[in-house]
Design a protein around this nucleic acid. Structure first.
Lengths: 218, 218, 218, 218
DNA sequence: CATGAATGAGGGTTCATTCAT
DNA sequence: CATGAATGAACCCTCATTCAT
């Protein structure tokens, strides 16, 4: 029932290139593009400076290819969920779990993506992440469309894209809260916190909120 | 019915300091802290370089004081709403309108704040914005508590803080979408777009979604 | 018998100018001309910045007038000793005591002067301290000349200026050692150290060494 | 009989590092640490700015390593003299000659060292040159101890360290006088002056003065 | 593939000094 | 006399990048 965490065809790279990209993810996530220096990246990757320019043309390209790598990974995983033949609610759950899983596995990835999504555009190369993001939104919107067609879902609006945006947004809110909390949490308590905030109850709770809202107002 | 946009006690600064802070808001919002150079700021402010160091001790302090300035402004406006004696739903609407108004008046401010909230922490001075943000969340949570006590609100959960977080988060999602759209919209269409996305219907729609959710799932 | 420490006609200055000069002495002594900023001086003097430019034309002039002030003071005190009608040996003792007294009273003054005498010339305004210093050497040389004429002194050489240079130099060595030791000594032990290193025995010892040398070599 | 001027183990540096250090010696000697800018150093060394930071971490480290380099050189040469098996007086002569030789070879080195020794401490990085200097003093003191033990020397005091301090001090006085004179002497007369002031007679004269003092006082 | 060495441009910051009041 | 505000030039240092080997 849970989404598998198999990374889909992560395009095999030479070991050094892999190290560089790994370091780039961590550092771009923690410090952002502008505040991360090439020197830091190669140091973290334990690689000499010109190696970076050999495998990636420059800092900008490294950023783009790294981001592409991560986005494609997410895109494919979302696609798998959309196309899976499970019930509507299960798909929503699966989407939430996909992101929670990602948070548990490598928080840097999410931090990176959200920093790009919400951070200032001119602080980094002009990567059209909104476009990529919109793709994902469209994918998710398709879930709602199908669900309504199959009478599995009776939406309060017919703006499927708006719904998708808000659903993904709600997931993002949850993740950001988790990330920020993890940053200030002692190592010892991190795991328990993660287990709780990404557990089945939390998933269910989020889906419930999305479907039913906060409550009745008089 | 709408919240007034009166800026509360904007602490009078010398003209040049004002110019610097204004430029800082715009540039930090557009490019982030790390990618914005002091030289750019003083150029945008049409002020000589040492002036920045005369009024603010350094780039870091300028950032902190600027952010403080903006957060206090928001905090006070939210406080006014919380303490106002209007109906529950009206308070929610007022909160949404406050942010929409801010978007219309000076989008840079929101961009700035959200960049700090969601951007990588190490890309800027260590400002505890999460703490400030939590204050706001607590304020909003108080709204829910009071509403339930007054039987104006029948929540699906008793986690008021969670509700507040999600409500503010939903507003943020809406704002981010608006900001990103504005960035790519031609000047000519910007105003109409803004009017629509921040109009009364949009406010109502957002509050509705928050209270009632996406719809019924079978 | 000891030289009086009366400062001879210190040219009455307005209070603020006095404060500035005092701060300048301390700071130039501790950090040198180049490493001392005008801001530091006015801060130490608790005076506003333009005051310095009102009383002294600029940093350079402040330096020159300050140094002049100190040199003239020394020059006059040495002159008094040279012209006094005491025995040869007493004059030598008086010269040593004059410097030791100065060390006790205000070590900054000596530090200042020696820094200028021995420090790199281009690190400060082109003040001909060598010339001033030579004046003092000539004064002291006169002591030897008179002493020999009066058969009070039977020198091993007739290079009076060389003798004077070495005598003053030996005093300087002693002072430098004292200054450097004071720098690393805890406040509590400073006074006792000073008392001992500038006491009558020390004076006698130094004069003895100058006259008789280190000892006999076979 | 004269000490050889062979530079002992000058630790091989890359050519550019060597140029930088050479320029640093000249400039720090002439202008002091504070008044010497990094730009001047790299210009004098005919090297680009970042090169300095490549080989030395920063201006401060450059200063420390340069000073260390020079002090070690002196220390080793003094050690060679102390351990040599020549007569007491010859050792003293050798010490004088060592410094005179250094003055002839590269006056900047001595200027540098003396500026650090006597200049204001806070005008430069906190290098414990006094400690290094004390080492040298201790080395020289050992000469006196050995000479007395061998009945080659009958000192007027048993404060060997005091004697060493004064002996080195006297050499310093002589050198400072030479340096200051050279500064104002036309190029054409410099060499003759140097030859005279560092010639065998001068050496003998200085040693004589140290041992026998200025003369008899009645 | 891999490296040590090198560079032009620009980073944040502080300098001595002066203006208008 | 005295001040707060202002300035052009220079400070030390680091950036992303590339060269020759």
């Amino acid at each position: 029932m849970t989404t598998e965490s198999t990374i889909s065809t992560p395009e095999k790279l030479p070991q050094n290139a892999e190290r560089i990209m790994g370091a780039a993810i961590r550092l771009f996530a923690q410090k952002g593009y502008a505040a991360t220096s090439v020197r830091e990246i190669v140091q973290e990757a334990q690689v000499t400076n010109p190696m970076l320019y050999y495998y990636f043309d420059n800092k900008e390209t490294l950023f783009e290819r790294t981001l592409n790598h991560l986005m494609r990974y997410r895109h494919e995983n979302v696609a798998a969920i959309v196309q899976s033949s499970v019930a509507f609610r299960s798909k929503l759950r699966a989407l939430v779990e996909l992101h929670f899983e990602s948070l548990r596995e490598n928080p840097y990835i999410l931090q990176f993506i959200y920093a790009v999504l919400f951070g200032p555009r001119e602080s980094r190369p002009d990567y059209d992440i909104r476009c990529e993001h919109d793709d994902t939104v469209d994918q998710v919107a398709e879930i709602f469309r199908q669900a309504q067609a199959a009478s599995e879902f009776e939406p309060n609006t017919d703006d499927y894209k708006g719904l998708a945006d808000r659903f993904i947004g709600l997931i993002g809110i949850e993740l950001m809260r988790g990330l920020k909390t993890l940053e200030v949490l002692p190592e010892s308590e991190a795991e328990r916190y993660l287990d709780e905030m990404t557990g089945p109850d939390a998933v269910e709770n989020l889906v419930d909120f999305f479907l039913n809202g906060a409550g009745r107002a008089r």
